[in-house]
Design a binder for these strands. Structure first.
Length: 661
RNA sequence: GGGGUUGUAGCUCAGUCGGUUAGAGUGUCGGCCUGUCACGCCGAAGGUCGCGGGUUCGAGCCCCGUCAGCCCCGCCA
């Protein structure tokens, strides 16, 4: 098809902004054909740009023949430049922002054609089905043409802009810190970048600019902000990508409350972007209480349901499993969730079985329950429920006649994990969560250290530069697991949207911390020498926080996956379906980097046929069958037959080759 | 690393107990149509049932393996 040139065509209006007040004006519009409707001698085209959609119309009896020919050639997603007069519609469309008007075409340029899209470009109408996510990711450039994704990414841009302005207003200075930096032993797995200039040595992509922002405090900038990309080579989730964006801030001469106050101001403005109130100050909840009441360090407080400790109710019970917990002196506890109401009481056996599966997957042995429905009590341990126990349990339903109590027994870690998840699921199922709300919350007083079985030592809960709680300083040497940190997480609707801490700002405490972490003097010098140096040259008291911009944008947009607010996200297997990255590289590139990849072993297999296998040949044949890949490169088998020696050179065996583990 | 789930027309899906020529909606293409806007009506084209083995007289369906998407556990200072 002959394409038209853009030439001297300039846009006069955006498609979404045309209203009745524009009637009579001649306008020039640009965009994509959302849909062409040809009614014979009357043709409609919906023209889309990022600001909206407007209807173009042409009447066969009124327009020039060459314009008509062009119009009939227009297909979905063609790129058009249109000129016409805005007119009030005969038949208005109340569902469109521009539905009162249409543009009577006087001229049309087809700037480009388009193949039929492999996925629907328009948002799916009600009841319709979306394209599968792998296709959407493969054709992301088309997916991103959809109004809903455009809205998300535009809102994200607005949010990022608001963040920049907010911090600038508060005297923060924006910095850029290195992307090629040093690998650090703590924390997530690093993405590594080989150095060509220094063969055998590697940069790491930053997991966060943590140390750099602290050094900028030592330099005296006092207030730092960066909207930066961070990289962690760990497995993905719906709210986790290998590269993600942090709003990273750091401040000098501040206490925890100062950092929280400035963040709350920002959250109020961000929430207002989408018309949500966010009353300040946000509630503060100690980590201990969060785990005790919600079974989570990022509780969704939109549901009022709390975990309860019912251990004592079973102190004299015949139910051994629960009584054993009561006798364990707090090592194990019986904890429970109570849901009052008919919906909870009407849970079917099948639903409870499904719930039990969820509990098992989270590590529970099963899911004991007690349920009061239309037919009275039913329970997985009914024979152990005495009338007194039933009364005590039912009291947890706050006087309701029907309801459900689910139990978990075990260590606090185990019961928190199970009940924390069930609390969310069941609250959602029973409609206890007000989805319209934005519930902000600070979780504070995190532990400083936790024991790692894998590492065989204590590791930092937040990071190794987090200040111990002043009251707990001595515990660092005597009982490190009990030592609290001056660390705080910002939680929104059950998502951790940010986390930060007050930092250690003197070399002595930092060395103590490294010691508690089992990082020796020599290792500390090698990995963090520059930090220890900096701390010994007049570092101010400092603290900060990092916000997950992707998660925040996701929540602002009302989405449940951060892929919906990232232009080009990766799959759950950390692959880009559009570019097909990662991919093998040219061997020359590897040679320059002095890097060798571990090739899957090539193993050649041949087939030999014997009418009979002589007894003396059986052993070597067995050897062949069990030959490993490495052995195959050297091993030679000897077969003796009819007195003749037959050497089987495995390295010369012909035929197809296969990869083996 | 582990568990769950999905894979059939361009797209979204159905496909019974293993049995004739694998269907629907939508999209696409062609024809008709002057008020459509999820346009309507008529017609047509469109299939490596993810891939590879196996069982069977016969496999979209059963078995084994494998690849990919999604969700979760581990992991993510």
């Amino acid at each position: 098809m002959q394409l038209d040139l853009l030439g001297d065509f300039t846009r006069s209006h955006r498609n979404g902004e045309l209203r009745l007040s524009h009637a009579g004006e001649t306008v020039r519009l640009l965009g994509w054909c959302k849909r062409a409707r040809n009614l014979g001698s009357l043709i409609f085209i919906d023209l889309r740009d990022r600001w909206g959609v407007v209807q173009l119309v042409a009447d066969e009896t009124q327009v020039a023949p060459e314009l008509l020919t062009k119009l009939k050639a227009v297909r979905s997603e063609f790129v058009l430049a249109a000129e016409g007069v805005v007119a009030e519609r005969e038949a208005k469309n109340p569902n469109m922002a521009t539905g009162d008007v249409e543009v009577r075409l006087s001229a049309l340029r087809i700037l480009n054609t388009a193949q039929t899209p492999p996925i629907p470009v328009d948002d799916v109408p009600e009841g319709g089905a979306d394209a599968s996510e792998d296709l959407r990711l493969k054709y992301r450039f088309l997916d991103l043409r959809r109004p809903s994704l455009q809205r998300n990414l535009i809102l994200r841009s607005e949010a990022a802009n608001l963040v920049r302005n907010y911090f600038r207003k508060h005297d923060f200075i924006e910095f850029e810190t290195p992307i090629l930096t040093k690998s650090t032993p703590e924390g997530a797995r690093d993405y590594l970048v080989p150095s060509r200039v220094h063969p055998g040595e590697f940069f790491a992509l930053p997991q966060s600019p943590q140390l750099f922002k602290q050094l900028l405090q030592v330099s005296g900038f006092e207030r730092y902000i960066q909207i930066c990309r961070c990289f962690r080579d760990e497995d993905l989730r719906a709210d986790r990508q290998p590269e993600f964006t942090q709003v990273d801030i750091e401040m000098s001469f501040v206490r925890q409350e100062d950092v929280q106050a400035i963040l709350e101001g920002l959250m109020v403005e961000l929430a207002a972007l989408v018309g949500k109130p966010a009353p300040t100050p946000f509630p503060r909840l100690a980590y201990q209480d969060a785990m005790e009441w919600y079974g989570s360090d990022k509780p969704d407080t939109r549901t009022p349901v709390r975990l309860q400790d019912l251990t004592e109710l079973f102190a004299v019970s015949d139910f051994n499993l629960f009584r054993a917990a009561a006798e364990s002196h707090g090592q194990r506890r019986v904890r429970a969730l109570a849901f009052a109401g008919e919906a909870a009481g009407a849970m079917s056996r099948k639903q409870l079985d499904e719930l039990q599966e969820v509990a098992k997957q989270l590590g529970a042995g099963g899911l004991p329950y007690a349920k009061w429905g239309k037919d009275g009590l039913s329970s997985s341990f009914k024979k152990f429920i005495t009338p007194e126990l039933e009364a005590a349990l039912k009291a947890k339903l706050d006087g309701a006649a029907e309801g459900l109590v689910v139990f978990a027994v075990g260590t606090d870690d185990a019961t928190s994990k199970v009940l924390g998840e069930l609390r969310l699921r069941l609250s959602r199922q029973f409609g206890l969560i007000d989805e319209s709300r934005f519930d902000f919350l600070w979780v504070v007083d995190f532990p400083l250290l936790e024991w790692s079985e894998e590492a065989g030592r204590f590791v930092a809960c937040h990071h190794p530069f987090t200040s111990p709680h002043p009251e707990d300083l001595d515990l660092l040497d005597t009982d490190p697991g009990k030592c609290r940190a001056v660390a705080y997480d910002l939680v929104l609707n059950g998502y951790e949207v940010g986390g930060g801490s007050i930092r250690i700002h003197d070399a002595l405490t930092q060395s103590r911390m490294f010691r508690a972490l089992g990082i020796g003097e020599a290792e500390a010098r090698e990995k963090f020498g520059f930090l220890l140096d900096a701390l010994s040259y007049g570092a101010p008291p400092m603290g900060g926080l990092a916000l997950g911009l992707d998660r925040l944008a996701m929540l602002l947009c009302g989405e449940t996956s951060i892929r919906e607010v990232i232009a080009f996200p990766k799959t759950a297997q950390a692959r880009c379906l559009m570019t097909d990255a990662p991919s093998p590289v040219d061997p020359r590139q590897l040679r320059e980097l002095k890097i060798q990849t571990a090739q899957p072993a090539q193993y050649r297999a041949g087939v030999m046929f014997f009418e009979t296998v002589p007894i003396e040949a059986q052993a070597p044949l067995q050897a062949l069958r069990h030959m490993t890949a490495t052995a195959a490169q050297k091993q030679t088998s000897t077969l003796t037959m009819d007195g003749e020696v037959l050497r089987v050179e495995t390295s010369n065996l012909g035929g197809p080759s296969f990869d083996f583990e």
